[in-house]
Simulated assay, not measured.
Amino acid sequence: MDVFEDFLTNIEDESHRARMIEIIDWVQQTFPELQKRFAWKQPMFTDHGTFIIGFSVATKHISVAPEGKSMDLFVTKIEKADYTHGTKMFRIKFDQDINYDLLREIIEFNIEDKKDCETFWRK
């Protein structure tokens, strides 16, 4: 059984489920070295035991959580993509395009920045 299967089957809206599957599949295909983990009620991807990126579903959007440091560095690009954000996450509305170039850049940054990290979260 896939680590994310229960999470995905419990997304009631089929179009929202399909959108989440699309993003998760893209991450898996683009970064096959990352490990899947389900924690804090959300699918996430890790590298050598450290958090890289996580996702969650809300009524009107998918939340993307790359950690605060990444948010600080990419906030201008996140805003330019027309995504709303908090301090440690940004939101992709279900009617918005997914900016995969931005996601790739954030994930690549986290992998490189955390290559020597020995904890799950940055300290």
Rank of each mutant, 00 (worst) to 15 (best):
D116G: 09
S15C: 02
F7S: 06
F51Q: 10
R91S: 10
R104E: 15
E12I: 06
L103N: 09
I62C: 03
P32G: 11
D113E: 14
G86L: 03
R104K: 15
T76K: 13
L34K: 13
A81E: 06
D101F: 01
D97V: 05
C117S: 09
I107A: 07
T119Y: 09
I98V: 15
Y83S: 01
I111K: 15
H61A: 09
K80G: 02
V64Y: 07
L102Q: 04
F94I: 04
T9R: 12
T30E: 13
E14N: 07
R122W: 09
V27K: 04
M71H: 02
E33Y: 02
I106D: 00
F4W: 05
K41F: 01
D82C: 05
S70V: 05
I52M: 11
N110H: 06
R19W: 05
Q42L: 05
G86W: 00
G54E: 07
N10I: 00
E22T: 11
I111T: 05
H48C: 08
Q35Y: 05
L102C: 07
E118L: 10
V75T: 04
H61T: 06
D95F: 08
R19A: 11
I53H: 00
G49N: 14
V64Q: 03
T30I: 04
R122S: 14
R17T: 00
D2A: 04
D72E: 11
F7K: 14
F45T: 07
E5C: 05
R122A: 09
A81Q: 07
W40D: 03
K60N: 15
M89K: 12
H48L: 03
G86P: 06
M1V: 12
A65Q: 08
T119V: 07
V27G: 01
I111D: 05
H48S: 10
W121L: 15
F120K: 08
A65T: 14
M89H: 13
I106Q: 00
G49T: 02
T59Q: 12
A18C: 04
K123S: 12
A81T: 08
D25P: 04
F120T: 09
Q28E: 15
I62Q: 03
M89G: 01
I23S: 08
K69V: 13
I23K: 08
I78Y: 03
I98N: 10
F74V: 01
I23E: 06
V57L: 07
A65L: 11
R19I: 02
R17E: 06
Q29I: 02
I78D: 00
T46M: 08
T119S: 15
I24M: 13
M1T: 14
F74N: 00
K80A: 15
H16S: 11
T46V: 12
D101R: 07
H16N: 02
P43I: 14
Q96K: 13
E79S: 14
K60C: 01
